[in-house]
Design a protein around this nucleic acid. Structure first.
Length: 572
RNA sequence: GCGCCCGUAGCUCAAUAGGAUAGAGCGACGGCCUCCGGAGCCGUAGGUUGUGGGUUCGAUUCCCGCCGGGCGUACCA
């Protein structure tokens, strides 16, 4: 015990291995500038140990020596601290596998509980400012399910970046200028006039959805015939303005209900008013990146990898959407962001090269601007895709989906798949209260952990001043701890790779590990020492589940609704 | 036609710098267990990673051709 305490260091097993590995590589004279050299991975199979390093294989090319020979050298010089490491082995083409000692695993429980809700956080970002722009749906209709997916993914990724020390801003770009708003006004005017007995067709390329009908009725109820006598242009403008603000309010409300809050709602019109797009045009012109052809002004985007050049000013003198969008992104940089991440819909992927080209032409490093495409969503019922309404303009609204399956399930399902994949969203599964539903399964794990403590109190067991974790020796117990200590790395990798789907994947695994442990070992047994250790493990697991669910923006319930008995459910 | 994304077990998906015997869950089959809250445990079956080449000591991963799916290909937004 004495020795144990003495060698106890404020390091996780991973940090310890990286630190000793780094020292070892230096001793052996290897260049260790590339931090990736110290990356650790989890062996594919359990019997390959707990943590693996690929350093030897990655050094092999440069050193022109066999990976296994290098691995052997590393092992020979690696100073083993028995508190952390049981043994080290070479395996396969040159892997170095580490087997962790139970003592350091047991000690991690205290670390996790001490860190509490900060467990999983880090300072990798060092306060770097990063902006995420997502959803940014046109304010011409209600939000659809792809917007809901974008909202979930963007929000969770923002949470992840924030957790690892970046200063994150969430921003929504409002397209409140240009042709579509004009069309919106004309469409609403048509509904309004029709409702007041002057049948007027909605423009062919206008917006035909029912929501404008409802809005027209609403306007009649509050403002009566006030717009009837106006000149057509004035009426279209006024109603367009009203429709825009109405839709915007709806978007805001849908998103707030969904738990997604934007720091900035940036309006396109402000750029046009301040003529920032014209300043951008001048800069591109004076730096020689433009030319004139057929009375239009073009940007030589093909010089930066785009497949063709793009128009900035049309032949009749109007700025294109693209030019204003470039100005918008320049505006973001001017506000001091170090890095921009955009989420766009699948129909905009062809737009990436030109935006990237423009920002490069304006002097921004290519890697400072990143776009993720959020692929489409197929809604399934009982495993079958159900047809969206055939009528033009009808969509499955985000609000309808959230109403039916709830915020928690929606958010989890939307983030559960990598964004580059189309998502099949099974509505019935999302609503299911049972183990097949991953959201339920993870939340149940949290509720279970809470329940064990509730039960312990009922049985008169003390749950305070618990300290000793030395009785955690069983395979299921150790497996659970190993899963717990993966959490910080999972959070970091999910953020840095823009792959938020890793988080729900991890939580499913963690929940499985807890359920297994639970079924294998009774926590509340008579043996006080064992009970103490298991209670501590249960509590640490509860904490990590809670932290993970918080990052997903999902509730961590302390109990689940009963399946078959309608027991008293207390509220409050 | 051209460009981009995707194609992994019956289904839904993984595979962390090009690295180990391509892994989970669900479903199927056989057997256990059912105890703190509703299920977990052991085992079996299931793959030429769409296909054909190439680079490499090593390719699901990189390159080229082909097949299939999605999206784009506007002086629209």
């Amino acid at each position: 015990m004495q020795k144990l305490k003495k060698s106890r260091k404020k390091m996780t097993p991973q940090e310890h291995i990286q630190s000793v590995l780094s020292k070892t590589l230096e001793t052996l004279g290897f260049e260790t500038i590339d931090p990736r050299l110290l990356l650790l991975e989890k062996p594919k199979q359990e019997n390959f140990g707990d943590i693996a390093s690929t350093a030897a294989m990655n050094l092999a090319r440069e050193a022109k020596r066999a990976p296994r020979v290098i691995a052997q050298e590393i092992i020979d010089h690696f100073e083993i601290d028995p508190f952390y490491i049981d043994k080290i082995e070479i395996a396969g083409p040159g892997y170095i596998n580490f087997y962790l000692a139970p003592a350091c695993l047991q000690a991690m429980i205290a670390d996790i509980r001490r860190a509490g809700e900060n467990y999983g956080k880090s300072d990798i970002g060092r306060g770097q400012r990063i902006q995420l722009e997502f959803v940014s749906a046109n304010p011409t209709g209600p939000l659809n399910v792809v917007s809901a997916r974008a909202a979930s993914v963007g929000d969770v990724l923002a949470n992840l970046f924030s957790a690892i020390g970046f200063a994150v801003a969430r921003e929504y770009y409002v397209n409140d200028a240009g042709r579509q708003v004009k069309l919106l006004g004309e469409s609403l005017a048509a509904r309004y006039l029709t409702a007041l007995g002057r049948p007027t067709p909605v423009p062919a390329d206008g917006y035909h959805g029912d929501y404008l009908n409802h809005l027209a009725m609403q306007i009649i109820a509050t403002r009566g015939e006030a717009f009837l006598a106006m000149a057509e242009e004035e009426r279209d403008n006024s109603l367009g303005e009203m429709a825009l603000e109405h839709m915007l309010q709806r978007h805001r409300k849908s998103l707030e209900t969904f738990g997604v809050h934007f720091d900035v709602w940036f309006r396109e019109s402000t750029l046009r008013e301040s003529e920032e797009h014209l300043a951008i045009l001048d800069r591109l012109k004076s730096s020689g990146h433009t030319f004139e052809k057929d009375e239009a002004v073009w940007f030589r985007s093909s010089e930066f990898g785009d497949e063709k050049d793009r128009v900035l000013i049309t032949s009749d003198g109007r700025p294109t959407y693209f030019l204003v969008d470039v100005a918008y992104h320049e505006n973001k940089y001017n506000r001091g962001f170090d890095r921009l991440i955009d989420f766009w819909g699948p129909d905009h992927h062809g737009y990436i090269p030109r935006m990237s080209a423009a920002l490069q032409a304006l002097g921004h490093p290519k890697e400072k601007f990143e776009v993720s495409i959020i692929q489409q969503v197929n809604l399934l019922r009982d495993g079958r895709q159900f047809k969206m309404s055939k009528r033009a303009g009808e969509i499955i609204e985000m609000d309808e989906l959230i109403d039916e399956v709830g915020v928690d399930a929606s958010r989890f399902f939307f983030v559960d798949r990598r964004t580059s994949q189309q998502l099949d969203f099974d509505i019935e599964l999302a609503k299911e209260e049972g183990q097949n539903n991953p959201v339920w399964y993870v939340q149940m794990a949290h509720a279970r952990a809470c329940n064990i403590f509730k039960k312990a109190l009922e049985k008169g067991y003390s749950t305070s001043n618990l300290k000793d974790t030395s009785r955690l020796t069983d395979d299921y117990e150790l497996a659970l701890i190993k899963k717990l200590i993966e959490f910080p790395e999972t959070v970091a990798q999910a953020a840095l790779n823009s792959e938020p789907h890793r988080l729900p994947g991890y939580l499913k695994e963690l929940a499985t590990a807890l359920h297994r442990f639970y079924h294998q070992n009774i926590v509340l047994i008579d043996d006080e020492a064992i009970r103490e250790s298991r209670l501590l493990l249960t509590d640490a697991t509860r904490q990590v589940l809670k932290n993970g669910l918080a990052l997903l923006g999902i509730s961590a319930p302390e109990y689940m609704a009963k399946l078959d008995s309608v027991e008293e459910v207390e509220i409050g």
